[in-house]
Design a protein around this nucleic acid. Structure first.
Lengths: 247, 247
DNA sequence: GAGTGGTCTAGACCACTGA
DNA sequence: CAGTGGTCTAGACCACTCC
């Protein structure tokens, strides 16, 4: 943690050049051999400096192509209370569509559906470990760019024979269908964390290698959990907003 | 991004050993020379594997001492509605104390207080840019280990001549004092993000190099913002929980 | 094929910690 | 002091992208 480590000095120089737009957004930085010559440092040291900038979200590497200046934080601010409201659903807007409408991007998504035993989630759902869950694995895109991964799980006993086992759940999304099936949605709970992405997430979300925000949403009908939705989104690209009345 | 990169294999082996508690929480991993011998890999490769585990929050390094297994997510933050409730305050529990009581760690904190012009925050508070804010900069510790940085800002016109300009605000914390001063707390808003820590945060929070969670809480009295609290906590060490009634 | 970043080696010296 | 992790070098081969 030496304050004057060579790789930190180099990182600082490059950081300043990026901030003062010597290299603009999308520009390709000089290739490693050039940087080695310019700073008279070994390749390892240069790469350590670049890794620091990458971790800070300033640049991203493309294998066989080059190192590029990343766009600054594009903040999509999500307000969970609003986006999950019945009013939105009755306007046929799923949560993601609601954001799109609010923020002027064109949404799209792809879905895979499968079934698996509940295992660790059995207790949460109050079912047996061998009982099946319906899994809906979605990739959400904004203007074609993947911005969120969302894996939703529901007890199969709820979804069997319904459109919830199809790729397209129709207007208003999963929550609207659950209400039509007679479930009175009581409350939502979201558990938020931050971690580094795994290789798969890194690729899918086209992350530099900044962190991801993780959200597990649990939807309750009465005291019973009827849906668990695990979401992963870019830390650099997203902000979450929660609001509530005092007491 | 080779799926079978040597350093990833090594990281996986160690990860499994940690998860199956071959090495328990707090244990020192074998020193680098031992790992080099065991895996027949170069020091660089071993260190790359260890860096991966560090980024995942599984281990942390102590210069001159060793590599240690990190505790799992320590602080599960209470549902924000509850932890800021009047009921808690009336039991003399500030938000952080409430968590400590719930989770059995011994809380402590240190505070610095100063004053500064509102500048960028002027608009949010609805005051002039040159008007002063009272800044309360706190480090929260669990069993002596720093787990959260919190910088709270209030218009000085509110705090002048009150205990809010002292180091110790007394039982129930800042919010309790604001109510006593006649402010009717209306609502709270929290904006959550994730990013990489800067050097200072890395040191203070003793982070490997995993990400941090950031939370900006805005407390409203009527339509007016009376406190802005910027919190930074370890992504590996914290989970945030929000709950609300459906519609 | 030429040029890029990704991984790896074998060695060196330094800075920090604790006995 | 011995042992630890932190930084750095000079070189090698591989995998990917684009022409």
């Amino acid at each position: 943690m030496n304050a004057t480590a060579r790789y930190r000095e180099i990182a600082d120089v490059l950081r300043n050049e990026i901030n003062s737009e010597v290299w603009g957004v999308g520009d390709k930085l000089p290739a490693e051999p050039e940087l080695i010559a310019r700073f008279s440092a070994s390749r390892t040291t240069i790469r350590q400096a670049l890794a620091e900038l990458r971790d800070a979200g300033l640049v991203h590497m493309r294998h066989g192509v080059g190192v590029f200046v990343s766009p600054p934080r594009v903040v999509k601010r999500l307000d969970s209370r609003d986006r999950l409201s019945r009013a939105r659903r009755q306007r046929n807007e799923g949560a993601f569509l609601a954001e799109a409408a609010n923020q002027g991007f064109t949404p799209s998504s792809s879905v895979r559906v499968w079934f698996e035993p509940a295992q660790d989630l059995a207790k949460l759902f109050g079912i047996g470990e061998a009982d099946e869950l319906t899994v809906r694995d979605r990739v959400m895109r904004a203007d074609g760019h993947p911005v969120m991964l969302a894996v939703s799980r529901l007890p199969r006993e709820i979804t069997r024979g319904t459109v919830l086992e199809e790729v397209d759940t129709g207007p208003g999304g999963t929550l609207a269908r659950l209400e039509e099936l007679g479930f009175d949605l009581a409350s939502h709970e979201e558990i938020v964390g931050a971690r580094m992405p795994d290789a798969n997430e890194k690729q899918l979300l086209d992350l530099g290698s900044g962190p991801v925000l993780t959200v597990q949403r649990r939807t309750y009908s009465g005291d019973r959990v009827i849906e668990v939705n695990d979401m992963v989104m870019s830390g650099a690209g997203y902000e979450l907003r929660y609001a509530w009345d005092a007491d």
